[in-house]
């Protein structure tokens, strides 16, 4: 056996003053993390702050005012665009969530079948294709078949890309669910339908809710696909904001943007607390 003496290296004198770091601690990491957080939120803060600027040039601060918010609510075009956004988001969410729930159930509880991988691939396809490609492809498609349903076209496009976003949390929930509960229900003389209605669906609801919220947010936020697909009268809020930015930046843009931001933040936080497992009695 090769025995090599493994001598202790000469050591610097006891580092009295120098702060000892815990094992594995990297200096400056906390600072970096907080800088990162500032980087994420600073632009949002600046945007919201300037929405309260009195003057009509965004970047020259003249005083505090909430006038721009009043103006936003008084602007009929913005109201119309917001209404369009909500109509599109609600319709797309309703259709996408229904389709996604059915698909998730079929995939998680339908047993193994040929083409399961391909099915999954198709459902998640909209996640992989770049948005701009989806946008122009949809535009080409609608124009080549001559489909012109106004807002209907936008709803169809949104439904398509919302399906995978609704699908993912529902499927995750289904896969995390204990199948023995369904077996227990059948064991206790429930029919398939009763088991679904009384056991599967109630347990699945948080997943469905999360999927619906996610697709609602995604639909509300979409810009590029709507830009390409929507006709002149069917503008949604993001597209309207885009046209405002193009015309010149006023605090009004900031005000309407802030409202949209606030809405998304509320939705995402709600989504977060819906999907997070409730702390049970033996949760740590």
């Amino acid at each position: 056996m090769v025995v090599r003496d493994n001598t202790i290296p000469a050591v610097a004198p006891r580092l009295g003053e120098k702060k000892r770091r815990a094992f594995g601690e990297v200096p400056g990491l906390r600072t970096l993390a907080f800088c990162f957080l500032a980087f994420l939120y600073l632009p949002i803060g600046v945007l919201v702050a300037y929405s309260f600027n009195d003057g009509n040039i965004v970047m020259v601060w003249t005083g505090f005012s909430t006038d721009w918010y009043v103006k936003v609510f008084g602007n009929a075009d913005i109201r119309k665009a917001a209404l369009n956004s909500v109509i599109v988001a609600v319709s797309a969410t309703a259709i996408a969530t229904t389709c996604a729930t059915l698909a998730a159930l079929a995939l998680a509880r339908g047993g193994a079948f040929r083409g399961k991988g391909a099915t999954l691939g198709i459902i998640t396809l909209p996640l992989m294709v770049p948005e701009i490609v989806t946008a122009v492809a949809t535009l080409v498609f609608f124009s080549s078949i001559g489909l012109n349903l106004g807002l209907g076209n936008v709803i169809i496009a949104h439904t398509t890309f919302c399906i995978p976003f609704a699908f993912m949390p529902i499927r995750a929930r289904l896969e995390g669910m204990d199948t023995t509960l369904e077996q227990a229900s059948r064991d206790l003389y429930a029919s398939d339908w009763e088991t679904f209605r009384l056991v599967t669906l109630p347990l699945l609801m948080p997943g469905v809710l999360a999927g619906a919220m996610l697709s609602f947010v995604i639909s509300m936020d979409d810009f590029i696909i709507t830009l390409m697909v929507a006709g002149a009268g069917d503008t949604t809020l993001p597209v309207y904001i885009y046209s405002m930015i193009r015309q010149g930046i006023t605090p009004e843009v900031n005000a309407v943007s802030s409202i949209l931001l606030l809405f998304s933040i509320v939705m995402v936080t709600a989504y977060w607390f819906t999907t997070r497992q409730k702390p049970g009695p033996n949760a740590h």
Binding site: L40, L47, D221, I241, S257, V268
Partner: peptide, 16 residues
Amino acid sequence: IPFWTNQLVRTFAWII
């Protein structure tokens, strides 16, 4: 949170 908030609006903030 920022990731799910409107991309257009967040990019616009950088103009300011």
